[in-house]
Simulated scan of single mutants.
Amino acid sequence: MRLAFRLSLIGLALLAAPTALAQGAPDAARVAAARPVVDKIFPVGTYRRMMDGTMSKMMDSMMDGMMKMPIAQFAHIGGVPEEKLAALEESSMEQISAIIDPHFRQRMKLGMDAMMGSMVDMMDGFEPKVRNALTRAYARKFDGKQLGELATFFGTPTGDLYARESMMMFMDPEIMSEMQALMPEMMKKMPEMTAKAEAATKDLPPPRKVADLSRQERGKLAKLLGVEASVLHDAPVASDEGTE
């Protein structure tokens, strides 16, 4: 139950997509006027500049912070009752991993760097679509006169510097420091956030089990999953159900 709520938070960002699609396409003249503006504010290679090196350092700092967090906080987020956490108050992931896997931090660092390298390469290929979408967004937000004024400003030394660095400012050490500090605080708040999500949906009926489905519904579900209907069955009750 708790795990389902935490996983459902991942999809919240997708809610903005229908709104954007419903706004309609901007006219061609404004798109043309927006393109040089986006060329300045989001030049080719922006994602690589943002992610290559800077993101790796940020992830390292976040990992260091999480390794030092009391293991009781992780257990609490996982639904372990308060009375069972007292003995864990002084323990940290760093202390435990030093015994179980002395190379854990190095393993995570190497793995994260490898993943980040692949992510940078992937974003290189994805960036043109983002630039096109950003061009349409600017064309929708600003009229031709405003886009011309932006282009004029970006043609000045100060405007050119601002345009080139505006996206990179989000990776500035000052901002990264605050974002890193947010992670432990967010993890502390996670049980409270999960409880509020559960309270908000408590009057809804629970999700149906496979056994509750009609033969037709079971067949449709099997087709969507690409399996035979005969293999569908209800999963065993999760162990954290008893902690609700």
Rank of each mutant, 00 (worst) to 15 (best):
A4P: 03
F154Y: 03
L134D: 00
L15V: 15
P184F: 11
M69K: 08
L85R: 08
M66W: 02
T135P: 03
E89C: 06
P43F: 07
V80L: 05
G117E: 11
T156P: 01
T152W: 06
G144Q: 09
A163V: 10
E217N: 05
P184I: 12
A139I: 05
I10T: 09
E178V: 12
S214H: 15
L21M: 11
R107S: 10
S97G: 07
E228S: 15
M93N: 14
K129P: 00
V80M: 06
L88H: 04
T152G: 04
F153Q: 08
K141V: 07
K141N: 12
A16K: 10
I96M: 13
Q106L: 15
L204S: 12
A151V: 08
M116K: 02
A151M: 10
M63C: 02
L110T: 15
A32W: 11
P206C: 00
Q146N: 06
P191I: 08
M116T: 05
D143N: 14
M168F: 00
D160K: 09
A25L: 05
V80E: 02
M179T: 12
G53S: 09
R208K: 10
M187H: 07
A197C: 15
M193I: 12
G65L: 06
T46F: 04
R105E: 07
F74C: 00
